[in-house]
Amino acid sequence: MRVVIVGATGNAGTALLRRLRSETDVEVIGIARRTPRDSGPYADMEWHSVDIGRDDALDRLTPILNGADAVVNLAWQIQPSHDQRQLYRTNVLGSRAVFRAALRAGVATLVHASSVGVYSPGPKWAYVKESWPRAGVPESSYSRHKVLTERMLDEIESDHPTLRVVRLRPGLIFQRDAGTEIGRYFAGPLLPARLLRFGWVPVLPANPGLRLQAVHADDVAEAYLLALRADVHGAFNIAAGPVLDPMVLAKAFHGMPLPVPGFVLAGAAALSWALRLQPVDRGWVKLALKAPLLSCDRARDELGWRPARGAVESLHELVDGLAERAGRDDSPPLDPAGSKPGRLGGLLRGRLPGSGNPY
């Protein structure tokens, strides 16, 4: 099986590469805007450097996808949050280029990385299935872009019924190697990450809406492999237990929950983002407060998927990665170099949080 992975150097992409390397009948081709260094563990793979948001992306992608059995689209940008045109260019127009190239090349299977963010606001004390409405959370550009890409897939499925389209909709994806990357994208250079090495967070914001789900990147990679192997189509929710709520987090990090109204959380994010103190706008807070909890029954029943690691274990691993500034110097998005946008070295060079392309 010849599989092309678009966006192969990021959080989910590196985990999927690790998983596929043990599959002797799978040939993997990686696509990224910046490919890994020749000395890395993936140097023996076939790599192509393509910026999927460029006008020529379709023409460049099509010959790479020729002869492929499946395409996995993982390419997505979260930063720079102050440049919405850049995000739309990569996330929406870039995804469209990948989808069109797959059709031109006659690929039989298209697997797309969607998200819990595609869903309309939903319950925080019950679990929604894949049929839950997909209007997203309008305040979040991330959510709006996920909705737009899924609508494109709806049209493709309608027009090309022989194409097998699979969408994975995971919760938060954690792994140790992504510690520095996630810190850059969601916290910025002012986070005293080194203090997290003690595993203690004295005060944690508590709100009834702050009930989220997470999953380890290796378990997400397993779900992608199962989706490639199985004769399935459609959407699959992917998340591990337990639900990460303030009480679970307080116990995990020996802290005290501090009740905070949702408008205060959103207002604090909006103000600090506008002042360029951190890279997360209020849309991310709104998404966290409104996104529903995921039922993963379909993934269990049709893919045979079960997470090997729980959400708390995965979160501890991520926090350890944040504290130790973990990453991969052979993967540009996961590179822990201090000069990158979102790190202190980048700040000293005038790269304020939420600006500059960390990819």
Score class of each variant (00 low, 15 high):
283 G>Q: 07
107 V>L: 03
239 A>V: 08
165 V>R: 09
248 V>G: 00
341 P>G: 04
69 D>S: 15
56 D>N: 13
30 G>R: 00
62 T>Y: 01
156 I>E: 04
82 H>G: 07
180 T>P: 01
299 A>G: 08
359 Y>H: 14
230 A>N: 11
130 E>I: 04
309 R>G: 01
33 R>L: 06
195 L>T: 13
336 P>W: 03
174 F>A: 13
354 G>H: 04
297 D>I: 02
52 I>N: 02
172 L>G: 03
223 A>C: 10
98 V>N: 02
238 I>R: 11
256 M>W: 13
255 G>L: 08
19 R>V: 05
331 S>K: 03
78 I>V: 14
305 W>H: 13
28 V>Q: 00
106 G>Q: 10
203 V>I: 12
337 A>L: 07
240 A>G: 04
293 L>R: 07
340 K>A: 15
91 N>K: 11
54 R>Y: 01
171 G>Q: 10
9 T>D: 09
246 P>C: 00
266 A>V: 02
191 L>D: 09
50 V>S: 03
221 A>Y: 00
302 E>G: 09
46 E>S: 14
326 A>C: 10
46 E>G: 14
73 N>L: 06
109 T>M: 11
111 V>F: 00
59 D>T: 14
156 I>L: 15
321 G>P: 11
271 L>H: 05
230 A>V: 02
327 G>Q: 09
104 R>H: 11
9 T>W: 02
215 V>M: 05
299 A>H: 08
343 R>H: 12
315 L>D: 03
278 Q>C: 11
246 P>V: 04
52 I>V: 15
91 N>D: 11
31 I>Q: 02
287 L>D: 12
120 S>Y: 09
249 L>E: 02
321 G>E: 10
233 H>C: 12
34 R>S: 12
226 L>F: 00
253 F>H: 05
6 V>F: 00
287 L>F: 14
232 V>N: 08
54 R>E: 15
311 A>N: 01
55 D>H: 12
140 S>V: 07
169 R>L: 13
173 I>C: 05
311 A>R: 02
356 G>R: 03
301 D>V: 10
253 F>V: 07
132 W>M: 00
225 L>D: 00
335 D>I: 03
95 S>F: 11
282 R>A: 15
119 Y>W: 06
242 P>A: 01
50 V>T: 06
218 D>I: 07
64 I>R: 06
46 E>M: 13
294 L>S: 12
96 R>Q: 14
128 V>K: 08
179 G>P: 06
303 L>A: 10
